[in-house]
């Protein structure tokens, strides 16, 4: 464990120094993410000009929900997104060889080696938006609910990564996974809406087959309605099963990896 922690600290050091080399890109990316946050907030603000409630949530509640999603997106952009970008390239070029032979988990190395330092600033901004939306909330939010919510946000970011990996790994068999990745990003839009707007069958699918609602919608519900042990167990259980499934899929893919010809 210590070895992995030390290794991750090295990744961080290297990523920060590298990102400062490309200063213009550093700022472009920060502005880009901020624009995404503004667009998301404006979208829901306009919707609430025409309705008081959406999926059983009022505007103050939806602001917390959206801010929670922004934090998850920021974590994803900071910790995983660059690595997800490089993964298919490494597989197709055969550069994965260098990672497979290292004495650490290849999944750990390839998922975490590139930390986006510029997006880290966005993570701070998104966290600020979340704090602001919680502080301006007129009702009372219990501390236990809040702690569960924040914990489940981290879980949501992890689940987001796991789900994306399911769409990335097929690149070991196909020449390109562009379609699958585009499909994944289309499907993530399902996460960005409150769970109660979906019909009961859609909700069931989005809590099991493609557990998009577990990323932020259910954590937000736990924040407003209190921690339901069954719901929390479900969220954590599905995340754990998805991770085990993804790891098994990764190992299977590695067995099929045949260097540059993949």
């Amino acid at each position: 464990m210590n070895r992995y922690l030390r290794l991750y600290l090295q990744f961080l050091k290297f990523s920060f120094s590298r990102s400062l080399e490309y200063r213009m890109d550093f700022w472009f990316r920060i502005v880009m993410d901020c624009m995404f946050y503004v667009v998301e907030l404006i979208f829901f603000t306009i919707l609430y000009q025409h309705t008081d409630m959406l999926g059983g949530w009022n505007y103050d509640q939806i602001l917390i929900f959206v801010s929670g999603f922004l934090v998850i997106d920021a974590i994803h952009m900071t910790v995983f997104s660059n690595n997800m970008w490089w993964m298919p390239i490494l597989v197709n070029k055969g550069d994965l060889d260098y990672y497979v032979v290292r004495p650490v988990s290849s999944l750990f190395f390839l998922s975490l080696r590139d930390f986006a330092a510029n997006s880290f600033l966005n993570l701070l901004i998104a966290s600020g938006i979340l704090c602001w939306s919680i502080l301006r909330y007129p009702g009372e939010l219990e501390t236990t609910n809040l702690i569960w919510f924040l914990f489940l946000i981290l879980n949501g970011a992890f689940l987001h990564y796991i789900l994306q990996m399911f769409f990335q790994i097929p690149v070991f068999w196909t020449h390109t996974n562009r379609g699958l990745v585009t499909a994944f990003f289309s499907a993530t839009e399902l996460m960005e809406r409150p769970d109660k707007i979906y019909s009961i069958w859609t909700r069931r699918i989005l809590m099991t087959v493609f557990p998009a609602l577990l990323v932020i919608a259910l954590p937000a519900r736990i924040l407003f309605e209190g921690p339901d042990p069954l719901l929390i167990s479900w969220v954590l259980g599905v995340t754990a099963c998805s991770f085990l499934g993804m790891r098994a899929f990764w190992n299977l893919a590695l067995r099929h990896y045949s260097s540059a010809s993949s």
Binding site: T174, H175, T176, G179, L180, T182, A183, S186, A187, E189
Partner: peptide, 16 residues
């Protein structure tokens, strides 16, 4: 890239 072509189309349409 026909597989990509159809996957992108079907998923995007259904989700939308």
């Amino acid at each position: 890239y026909r597989v990509d072509f159809w996957i992108t189309m079907v998923v995007a349409l259904v989700v939308n």
